[in-house]
Design a protein around this nucleic acid. Structure first.
Lengths: 166, 166
DNA sequence: AGCAATTCAATTGTGTGCAATATAAACTTT
DNA sequence: AAAGTTTATATTGCACACAATTGAATTGCT
């Protein structure tokens, strides 16, 4: 009780000074849900030669293709240390091409190759083969997505925002 | 417009053959939420010398300490290829000890050291310092946790369960 | 008892994620 | 315009996550 902090008397779950049980933690629920989802995607995506993050990158590129590395990283909420090697692996598979932006040589433009565009058709079946493994109505999945996005928006993002909104 | 593609007229969301937008995908929402949460934990946990998965492992061990590697992996929903090196790093920090189970030499028993037990007190502040960075009422966080766990339970787990419940 | 099948943990190899740093190209300031 | 600053990407090093494999111990079967 020598705390300067914000600790009220008896908290159920968060912030009480006593550690919450693992299986009550929102953050662990998210963490293990993502691991499971990734495992679920793996066999489906390996038929396309993609990992799960690579699939996400391709989804972003299928939405609009000539795009800078930075813009892609922002869409995926990943930094260059993650995106650059990922793109190199996609390039090695001939799904994307990378070139410097002539008008600003700092930037690198990523674009789909023919093969990358063509893969979109085959990927169209991915959502259905995932959805059919999940024993929940679509409406509930959509609702959960909304809630997770709302949650995410309440997290301090790219350390801009934490102080910048003043 | 020279496309062979499969683009149907106008699909809403899942399973229709058209790819959903990245920012509508539940799975991407989970994925990026977890990345952000991990980034949020990082500075708080690094004060304790822990990473986020290490913190989860310690939470599990603080709940009950002498525990096999397998039991810990099951609690965390991780396999031995992830847990073993993680435990070695915790051991190097003298937070846990590992020894073979004398009654079954295949098993390895993990237990907290004195230092590992002691760390629990310092970790007690972690949930509060996280919660205060999240601009949502606790009730909503708890509710979201429930929903994510329900979602997770509907995923085929460790490929046992998919067929075993007959 | 003897041997195959199973179980448990560790190891290997690939692919993320991210902090910290590096490098080069633009922008700013004077 | 030279120098310092900022911006965009790449690189390095560390820690996951997991498939596939290995090795050792136990269980099951006959």
């Amino acid at each position: 009780m020598t705390k300067t902090s914000v600790q009220p008397e008896h908290m159920e779950n968060l912030g009480g000074g006593a550690l919450p049980r693992l299986d009550q933690q929102l953050c662990f629920a998210l963490y293990s849900a993502v691991n499971r989802v990734t495992r679920l995607y793996r066999p489906v995506l390996s038929a396309l030669g993609l990992t799960y993050p690579q699939y996400l990158a391709m989804l972003a590129l299928w939405e609009h293709s000539p795009r800078t590395v930075g813009a892609l990283g922002e869409a995926l909420d990943l930094d260059s240390g993650t995106v650059t090697p990922l793109l190199k692996r996609l390039e090695k598979q001939n799904l994307v091409r990378r070139r410097r932006d002539p008008s600003d040589e700092r930037r690198v433009i990523v674009e789909l190759t023919e093969a990358g565009q063509a893969l979109k058709a085959r990927a169209a079946e991915v959502p259905a083969s995932l959805a059919c493994q999940i024993a929940l109505p679509t409406s509930e999945l959509i609702d959960l997505g909304e809630r997770v996005r709302r949650f995410k928006r309440c997290l301090p993002a790219d350390d801009a925002g934490a102080y910048a909104e003043r």
